[in-house]
Simulated assay, not measured.
Amino acid sequence: MERIVYVNGAYVPESEAKISIFDRGFLFADAVYEVTSVLDGKLVDNAGHMARLERSCHELGIKIPVSAEELVEIQRTLIKKNGVEEGGVYLQLTRGAESDRDFSYSEDIEPTLVLFTQAKQLVNSAIAQKGIKVISYDDIRWRRRDIKTTSLLPACLAKHAAHAAGASDVWLIEDGYVTEGGSSNAYIVTQEGTLVTRPLSNDILHGITRAALMKLAEDSDLKIEERLFTIEEAYAAKEAFISSATTFVWPVVAIDDREIGEGKPGPVAMKLRDFYIRTAREMAE
């Protein structure tokens, strides 16, 4: 059965979904997005994703054409229509389309809202059980990474380079310090057992899963340091891992072909992953 998607107020088969070629999301990546994970047919941490969407739109001056309650209802309707038990809901909001291509835009432009579901296995993930390899890669993105825009070409190029090198992802480097993963937040656990991750700023995405993990780590009495760390410090770490909406927690077992710790998923990463999944299932709506 063909997947049902949402486009500007209508639920349609994906083959019938259309937007204008003059849409600014298509022409300029003038758009924001969110991905909310789905467990047991329910939305995980969705309030955080909707709050971040609102913040991104405020920063860029993009109008949200429906209420927060309507957005949630659209998400739930798509989950039901497509029978998704596990996976995610992708939401993209562009500034909209005008009559022709122009860098400037009018203030009364009507936005374009698109949502679709993706069914995928999140909990019983073979990748999470064996861990991933990453490579370091120069961070060439713009300076407002805290806004979740669709300007993802640098991340696409970085991830392609990782795959070409036999790795799964990248850890991006700026001024000698790790910023984040290709589409995730990055963490290390020092030899002394301290959880280290970069502090929130315009330089990284304010991850919704990151926020939940930091609370869970605190509840687990882990020592936490939000500070910059170098790739050399990561090489010497006891553990490393990433987090995002659809990975939850994935251990990093090698960076630039250097084994991290024992070269296998570490206890801190796996404990936080299990703790997060259990909590997410309890709190999903």
Rank of each mutant, 00 (worst) to 15 (best):
T77G: 04
P199T: 09
L213D: 13
R55W: 13
L43M: 02
L71P: 07
H49D: 12
A167T: 00
D274N: 15
K271N: 14
A47I: 13
K148M: 04
A158V: 05
S104M: 14
F28N: 01
L93W: 00
S151P: 06
I127P: 01
Q118L: 15
Y137F: 15
S67I: 05
L53G: 03
Q121K: 15
A237G: 04
Y276T: 11
A155P: 06
K130G: 01
Y137S: 12
T230Q: 05
T247P: 04
E180K: 08
T36I: 15
F103A: 12
I260G: 03
G207P: 02
V253T: 10
V44E: 09
R145F: 07
R76A: 11
T279M: 09
F22G: 04
I277P: 01
I127C: 05
L222Y: 02
G83F: 04
R258H: 15
R210S: 10
S184N: 10
W142T: 05
K148A: 05
D139Q: 09
V252G: 06
G41H: 01
V66R: 09
R258C: 06
A186E: 00
K264I: 11
K81M: 10
T247C: 11
R273V: 11
T150K: 02
A126T: 12
T117D: 03
L152E: 12
E218M: 10
T117A: 05
S106Y: 13
T36M: 13
K63R: 15
V252F: 03
Q129M: 13
Q121A: 12
